Amino acid sequence: MDTKQSIVFVGAGSMAEAMISGMLQKELFLPRQISVMNRSNSDRLEYLYQTYGICIAKNKQEAIEKANIIILAMKPKDVVEGISAIRDFVNEEQLVISVLAGVSTHTITDLLQKQLPVVRAMPNTSATIGKSATALSAGLIANKKQLTLSKQLFETIGIVTTVNEEDLHAVTGLSGSGPAYVYYLVESMEKAAEEIGLEKGIAKELILQTIIGAAEMLKHTSKHPAILRKEVTSPGGTTEAGLSILEQFHYQEAMISCIKHATDKSVELGAALTQAVSNLD
């Protein structure tokens, strides 16, 4: 930890809180090194102050100017307004890290109207329990040292990998939105458990441990998931009967289409924002 470094979050939602919590738990920063601001929700800022002891950025200009790292954590729809509010106070020596889905590093530098190093991150909501799968991509100006620093920040909330920026749309469709796909699966399993007469609490415990166990199996073996599936599937048995229904409803094709469609939507949203920014010129 570098006690001379300071970091400011522009946006105070759940992702900002997850990162703040992770960085403090891993002692990457002290509370006094972290500031947070948002557009208007003072109750949210007070909550973060009371919970983590961090600083509330009451003076926006001062907080931005003194920060070494600026993390853009507002909603993507608010990016134009959010960056416009701080761009007069940033300088080329600072590192900007964005967790805004679909917003390119080029768009961010255009909005900042300065050539700052920008690193894009695509974490997911499991960051709130330190289990995020995060992908990072460096903009044109960001160097290896800045990418390494960004990686250290996101390792406080889970695992981190680096990808080319054009691949972040695919990451968004796969792991960014991925927790929702798993939650939907659990919803379905819980409804099925109810229909076959299992008590709700027992069913939930069994479902969660089944998913955790399967994930651990995938993590700790080199076997392809198709092999693991076949090892569970006895000819003429119960698993085969269940899987036959999934095949009948084209489960695998549906999941592939789901991820592709989410990826396409990320591309679409990014293109629309890029166009909106270019119209401002």
Rank of each mutant, 00 (worst) to 15 (best):
Gly158Gln: 11
Ala203Ser: 01
Ile245Pro: 04
Ala262Glu: 00
Ile157Pro: 01
Ala101Gln: 03
Glu65Cys: 05
Lys151Tyr: 08
Arg39Leu: 04
Ala135Gln: 03
Leu45Asp: 04
Glu194Tyr: 06
Gln275Trp: 03
Val118Trp: 02
Ile64Asp: 01
Arg39Glu: 03
Tyr184Ala: 08
Asp88Lys: 10
Thr221Asn: 09
Gln25Cys: 06
Ala57Trp: 13
Leu153Ile: 11
Ile71Met: 09
Thr107Tyr: 00
Gln61Val: 02
Gln5Arg: 14
Ala57Met: 13
Thr210Glu: 08
Tyr49Ser: 13
Asp110Trp: 05
Ser42Thr: 15
Glu216Phe: 13
Ala215Gln: 04
Gln146Ser: 01
Ala57Asp: 09
Ala63Lys: 04
Leu246Asn: 06
Val277Trp: 08
Val8Asn: 00
Lys77Gln: 09
Gly102Ser: 08
Glu195Val: 10
Ser21Val: 05
Phe9Ala: 07
Ser104Phe: 11
Thr128Asp: 15
Leu246Gln: 09
Glu253Trp: 02
Thr3Glu: 14
Ser98Leu: 07
Ala85Cys: 12
Lys60Ser: 08
Pro123Val: 10
Val267Leu: 01
Pro179Tyr: 09
Ala63Tyr: 00
Thr210Cys: 05
Val79Phe: 06
Thr239Tyr: 05
Ala226Lys: 05
Pro123Gly: 09
Glu92Asn: 12
Ala73Gly: 07
Pro76Val: 07
Val118Asn: 01
Ser175Ala: 15
Glu155Gly: 15
Thr221Tyr: 13
Glu195Met: 14
Thr162Arg: 11
Lys58Leu: 12
Ile56Leu: 02
Ala192Lys: 13
Ala203Asp: 00
Pro76Tyr: 06
Asp78Tyr: 09
Glu199Arg: 10
Ala203Arg: 00
Ile159Leu: 11
Ile129Arg: 11
Ser42His: 15
Met217Val: 15
Ser244Asn: 06
Lys131Arg: 13
Met23His: 11
Thr233Leu: 10
Ile141Lys: 09
Gln94Arg: 05
Val79Ser: 11
Asn68Phe: 03
Ala138Tyr: 00
Thr128Glu: 15
Asn68Ser: 08
Thr125Lys: 12
Met74Phe: 01
Gly139Lys: 06
Thr109Asn: 14
Ser150Lys: 03
Gly270Leu: 02
Met23Thr: 10
Lys131Glu: 12
Asn279Gly: 13
Thr239Phe: 03
Thr238Pro: 02
Gly130His: 15
Asn38Asp: 14
Ser6Gly: 05
Leu198Phe: 12
Leu269Thr: 00
Ile86Trp: 08
Ala127Arg: 06
Ile211Tyr: 07
Cys258Ser: 06
Ile196Tyr: 15
Asn164Trp: 03
Gly22Thr: 10
Thr134Ala: 09
Ile256Val: 12
Thr172Pro: 00
Ser104Cys: 15
Ile256Asp: 07
Thr107Asn: 02
Asn41Lys: 11
Ala180His: 04
Ser278Ala: 09
Glu253Lys: 12
Leu149Gly: 03
Glu190Pro: 07
